[in-house]
Design a protein around this nucleic acid. Structure first.
Lengths: 223, 223
DNA sequence: ATCCGAAAAATAAATTTTTTATAAATTCAA
DNA sequence: TTGAATTTATAAAAAATTTATTTTTCGGAT
C-alpha cells in the first residue's frame, strides 16, 4: 500500500531527480510538467502533491485552488521565493508546507512523511550527526535522506558512536555494548564491522569521513 | 563542578517546573522567558540549552542560529507534537535533540545527560599542566586548545608525567608503567618517545619547554 | 535446500615502535 | 680547561603491530 505522490515541476531534470528520490524511499510517483497537466492528472490515488511554484501558465495560487478542489490532499510547495508575504497567501489558499530551493533531500522527505504520517512521535527518537539521522525506535538510518540498510550489529555500533559524539569509544567498551562479551585480543570482528559501516555511509556521502580511528584505543566520530 | 543549563521557555509555570526538576538532579539553571532574552543571557558558563520552540518574537530557527554562534553547546528543543514538520530544519541548524511535549521527566533527564555526557568522571578524568589538557577517559590531549594526536605509548608517557608533576620519573619507573617491562641499559626507546612528545608539543606551543631531562635518572615536568 | 548475516581467515594497507646511526650535550678526571 | 666517556637527542630505517578490506566459511532462519 504505497503512497503516491504527484510531482508538478516543469524542469524535467529536477522532476526526474525527485521521482528517483521518492521512489527510492518507497513512494509511488506521477510526474507532471505544468500546472494544468498537474490538475488534469490529479486523482484519488494521489496522497500528496509536490508543487513547484514557478510554473509557466497558470499562477501557483490558481493551481493550488484547483488541485484542492479536485481532491484535498496535502500540498507541499517548492519555491525559490523567500518573500514572506507570498508564503502567507499560499498558506491561506491551502498549501500545507513549504520548502525553499535548494533544499536537502532529507528535509523534503521529513516534510513529506510529516504530512503523511500517522504517528508523529517517531522522529523524537531520532538522533542526528552531520548528515546522518538515526531512529532508535524503528531502527532506521538515513544519510542525506538516503535510507541505509544496516545489520543489527552495525546499527548498534553506529548508535553507540552517535550517542557518544566526540568521545572515544574503546574497543572493549564497544565489545561490551554491542556484542555483550569481551573480545579476544586478536579479534578482527570489530574492524570488519567498522569497515562495512564506513562503506555503507560512503554511498550517499563520499565526501564526509564519519568514523575516526584512534590507534590502539578504539573509534570515535570525527569532529 | 555543576553543569549549568539555560532554560528558554515562555510559560513561567513550565519554566519553573523545569528549573526545579533540573536543580533536584544536580544541575545549575538559568531561566529565560523569550528567545531574545535567552540569546542575551547565554554565556560561557552554560553547558546545554533547553529551548521551547513556540516562542513569541524571533523564530526558533533564528534563535538556534544565534545561540550556536555565541557558544556552541548542545541544544535540546522542546516542542509540541504538531511542529513535527519543522524538525529537520532544526536538525540542520544545529539542534541536537528533541523532546515532544508532553514529555516524561525521565526522558528529558536521559536526553540531557546523553548530550552532556555528564559522566561525572569525564571532567574529573581530565588533568591539566600548564597549557596541556589530558583526558584519561577518551584519550585526548590538547595544548592551548589545539588537539594533539598522540600514539598509545606517547599518551601513556605524558599521562605518567602529568600524574606526577614535580616528581622525577625514573627510567625504570617509566618502563615499568608504560612498557610493562624492565629496559636493558642501552635502550634508546624512551629517548625516542620523549623526543617525539616534545616535538608534538612544540607545534602549538614553541615557547614552553615542558619536559625536563634529569641526567642519569629520568624525566620530569618542568616547573 | 537456500539465503543471509556473522564470524573467521587471508591479505593488504597503514601506523606505531624499535632499532640503528649519528650528532649533540653533559659529566668527570687529569 | 680539555678531552674521553657517558648519556641524551634526533632523524631515518627497519621491524612489529594494528587496522582495513576482501574473500571464504559457518550456522541459523525461512
Amino acid at each position: 500500500m504505497d503512497k503516491t505522490i504527484l510531482i508538478i515541476e516543469d524542469d524535467a531534470e529536477i522532476n526526474n531527480m525527485l521521482k528517483i528520490l521518492l521512489e527510492q524511499n518507497g513512494y509511488g510517483t506521477i510526474s507532471a510538467y505544468s500546472g494544468t497537466e498537474g490538475v488534469l492528472v490529479h486523482n484519488a490515488e494521489i496522497s500528496l502533491i509536490l508543487l513547484d511554484l514557478m510554473l509557466p501558465g497558470k499562477s501557483g495560487e490558481e493551481i493550488i485552488r484547483e488541485l484542492k478542489q479536485k481532491h484535498n490532499v496535502p500540498i507541499i510547495v517548492m519555491s525559490a521565493i523567500h518573500d514572506v508575504s507570498k508564503k502567507v497567501d499560499l498558506f491561506s489558499l491551502g498549501a500545507d508546507d513549504y520548502v525553499t530551493k535548494p533544499f536537502h533531500n532529507d528535509e523534503l522527505l521529513a516534510r513529506i512523511s510529516a504530512r503523511l504520517r500517522t504517528n508523529p512521535d517517531s522522529i523524537a527518537d531520532t538522533i542526528a550527526y552531520k548528515n546522518i539521522l538515526l531512529n532508535k525506535n524503528d531502527f532506521t538510518v538515513s544519510c542525506k535522506g538516503v535510507p541505509i540498510e544496516l545489520s543489527k550489529h552495525e546499527f548498534e555500533l553506529l548508535k553507540l558512536l552517535m550517542e557518544n559524539p566526540a568521545r572515544t569509544c574503546t574497543k572493549s567498551m564497544i565489545y561490551d555494548t554491542v556484542w555483550d562479551y569481551e573480545n579476544s585480543a586478536d579479534d578482527n570482528t570489530l574492524n570488519v564491522h567498522i569497515s562495512k559501516l564506513r562503506k555503507k555511509l560512503r554511498v550517499p556521502d563520499p565526501e564526509t569521513e564519519y568514523i575516526e580511528t584512534v590507534w590502539g584505543i578504539g573509534y570515535r566520530l570525527k569532529k
